[in-house]
Structure formats: C-alpha cells, structure tokens
Computed example of a mutant assay.
Amino acid sequence: MSSEVMAIEQVTLNGNTVTLLPLQAGHAEPLVQAAEDGELWNMKVTVIPGPATVETYIATALAGRVAGTVMPFAIVHRATGKIVGSTRFWKIDRKNRKLEIGHTWLGQSVQRSGLNTEMEYLLLEYAFEVMQCVRVQFTTDELNEKSRAAILRIGAKQEGIVRHERIMPDGRKRNSVRFSIIDDEWTEVKALLQAKLARFS
C-alpha cells in the first residue's frame, strides 16, 4: 500500500459521549481547567500541562502536526461541551503504517467513566480502518500502574520494558513499558471494546 494512505489529515472523531477535536492554540485555557481537576500537572509519572507549560505543550503538538508526525486532539465531553483532556496520534510512520497513541489524559472527575474507552475505540478504529495501520503502540511509565492496567484493559499486549527511555522533568531516568495492538488483532479488540461500551451505555 502506498504511503499516501497514512497522509496526515486532522479530523474530528465523534462518539456517543466524547468528541475528539483537532487541538488548537485557543484550547490552552480549557486544557488548564481540565488539568486543574485533580491538579494533574503535579503527577510524577506523566507530563500534563499546567498554567506555565500549556502554551509550549500545544506548540509542540502543533509543530508535530505540521511535520506530519502528530495528530493531536482535545477531548470534549459531549454531555457538558467541555474539554476534559487531550490525546494524540504521534510517531506517525507512513511508510511502515504504524503510530503511537499517547499523551493521553483526562480530568480526574471523568476518569473511569467510559470516556476513555470510547476515546480509545474511536482512535483505534480510525487508525486501523481509515489510516490502514498494521501496528498501534502505547508507551507508559513503568511506575504508572493505573495507566498500565488501562492499556491492558483495552486489549493491548505488553511487549517489554524499554530502560531509560526518557528523562522526566524532575530528572528521573524513566523506564517505559511498551504495548501494542496489531492489525491481525483488531477484529477481536474491536469486539471487546464494543462490549465494554455497551455496558457503559
């Protein structure tokens, strides 16, 4: 398949409870308000924007979109119309038809509410069925047990631990856990996620 299949196109993805909007510079204040729900910027196992970092956070994401390697989203809770977090496709590799879903976070009050499951479903469906990916990967901090459990719950398989994969803002050398879903597994994962969503509805 030609590399054009993976051509970057920033789309809006709509579900029953969540909408993924193309991230914009104007989303800075709503993102900070979302992260304030639980003061998520104080977490040591991930990087979530706060008042002092949100503009750089967005600028980096938008630069990646221009470069064709990132597709960043603001997560909107449809019931309230409010932005409640952010996620993105990144490390988009057109030639090898693979990417990573990451930089994902939700305000504390909407965690474990079904929003994350539907968001992941929308992203995976688009990655495998529209972008024709053969691999979607996830990476999280070895210490982030909550994130590791969430990734396993959506049907991804753990591949291993990448030692000293990145340096965190506090200087800690982070070991990261890598997970993936491949195209051969998508039909089964899709059915799993649809069943989960049916229980939430």
Rank of each mutant, 00 (worst) to 15 (best):
M168D: 05
R178F: 05
L122E: 05
A156D: 02
Q137H: 08
E185T: 04
P169C: 10
S180A: 09
F138L: 00
G155K: 09
T140V: 01
E120G: 02
R166G: 07
D141K: 01
R153M: 15
H164R: 11
D184Q: 14
L143C: 14
Q158E: 04
T140Q: 07
D183W: 09
E120Y: 00
A149T: 07
Q137I: 03
E142L: 02
E145I: 15
E129I: 07
R153L: 15
Q158D: 03
R163S: 05
P169Y: 05
R148I: 10
L143N: 13
A127I: 02
V134G: 11
D170G: 04
L143P: 06
V162W: 01
V177I: 13
R178T: 08
S180H: 08
T139R: 15
P169K: 03
R166L: 06
V130H: 10
I167H: 03
A149C: 02
I181H: 09
I167W: 01
R172Q: 13
V134H: 14
G155Q: 12
W186A: 06
L123D: 12
V177F: 12
I181N: 09
Q158H: 06
K157S: 12
F138Y: 15
D141C: 04
E185S: 12
N144E: 13
K146G: 15
M131F: 01
T187M: 11
L122H: 11
L143S: 06
R153G: 08
E142T: 03
M131P: 12
H164K: 07
D184G: 06
F128V: 00
R178N: 03
A127E: 11
S147W: 10
E142N: 11
Y126N: 05
L143A: 11
L123C: 08
E185L: 13
I167C: 00
N175G: 05
R172K: 06
R163F: 06
R178G: 08
T139S: 11
D170Y: 04
H164V: 04
R172F: 10
K157T: 02
L124P: 02
E142Y: 14
L143V: 07
T187I: 04
I154Y: 11
E129G: 02
M168P: 01
V134S: 13
I154R: 12
A156E: 00
V177G: 08
Q132Y: 15
N144Y: 14
I167A: 00
Q132R: 11
N175D: 12
M119K: 00
R174A: 10
E188V: 12
